[in-house]
């Protein structure tokens, strides 16, 4: 298979099937909800939807999202901008991706989903090629805070970070397609904050959480917001947090909100 064919296949698998760790987290969540509750109806609908999409190899959500490719530096010669764009255009033609890209200046649709900087390609030290697809509903719920924040009573300490994270969860009620997953970056400048927060979404939910991540998860779920904001025990499936150095003048807390449809997959390109 050529690089383009392998990348097209990566899009097909990413758009139609959730990673195993996310499915397992949803199944655990279903077990935790009361039988017959709206929360359990929502989660079982999600699981049924995913099984159907996987079987039919069709998009599991109609918003096929912002595409971010994280590519091993060593594959720079093979997984080029041209190869990635070709694969994305082909996947769009095959109906694996919605026509989901607007030329902002003219308001016209970019029918092959390929424009300047779109899809995003990040050459990095990760092995292989990882694709992350993030829908607009969840992206609209991502936020950045600057501490201290008087309205939240959030100071420049971990209690302040916690206040920001819980605020982001509360503000997403009904909109972010909960149960969600949070990628959080504490520190950095504004731009690295968003980039690093988003990268945390690549981490597996099977990974053992830190004590602070566990506390954030338990606190968020105790809010009772629940799947689709209709009440219940599962508001988040996981929280992944990273620190970055900061300037003395700045203290940013950046929250990347991901919906349950956390579509990510890695292949080793040959």
């Amino acid at each position: 298979m050529t690089a383009v064919e392998q990348l097209t296949e990566l899009v097909r698998r990413t758009t139609s099937s959730l990673p195993g760790d996310v499915v397992r987290a949803l199944e655990r969540a279903l077990g935790a909800e009361r039988k017959g509750s709206s929360a359990s109806v929502v989660i079982s609908t999600i699981l049924e939807n995913c099984a159907l999409a996987e079987k039919g190899k069709t998009p599991l959500c109609q918003d096929t999202g912002t595409l971010s490719f994280y590519v091993d530096e060593a594959l720079r010669g093979k997984v080029t901008r041209k190869a990635v764009n070709r694969a994305v255009a082909e996947a769009t033609r095959l109906g694996l991706l919605r026509r989901n890209c607007i030329d902002t200046a003219s308001g016209r649709s970019i029918d092959d989903n390929c424009g300047e900087g779109a899809p995003a390609i990040h050459y990095c030290s990760r092995k292989g090629v990882t694709l992350l697809m993030k829908g607009g509903g969840s992206e609209n719920m991502s936020r950045q805070y600057s501490l201290p924040d008087a309205s939240l009573g959030a100071g420049r300490d971990m209690e302040g970070v916690r206040a920001c994270v819980l605020d982001a969860v509360a503000k997403a009620q009904g909109y972010g397609c909960a149960p969600g997953i949070l990628g959080v970056c504490v520190g950095g400048d504004r731009a690295t904050g968003f980039a690093v927060a988003k990268e945390q979404l690549l981490r597996s939910l099977d990974e053992k959480p830190t004590e602070f991540e566990s506390r954030l998860l338990a606190d968020a779920n105790s809010l009772g917001i629940g799947p689709m904001g209709l009440g219940g025990r599962t508001t988040l499936l996981g929280v992944k947090l990273a620190f970055r150095p900061r300037l003395p003048a700045s203290y940013f807390v950046t929250v990347a909100y991901m919906c349950w449809a956390c579509r990510r997959r890695t292949i080793l390109v040959k």
Binding site: G153, E159, G160, A170, Q173, G226
Partner: peptide, 27 residues
């Protein structure tokens, strides 16, 4: 409204969770 019901409950829970986070909280 289920949204209103859930929002009221979650706001009350939030207030408890953040109690003592900062004494100088505005508003």
């Amino acid at each position: 409204s289920l949204f209103r019901e859930v929002r009221t409950k979650s706001a009350a829970r939030m207030a408890r969770l953040l109690k003592g986070a900062a004494a100088w909280k505005n508003s």
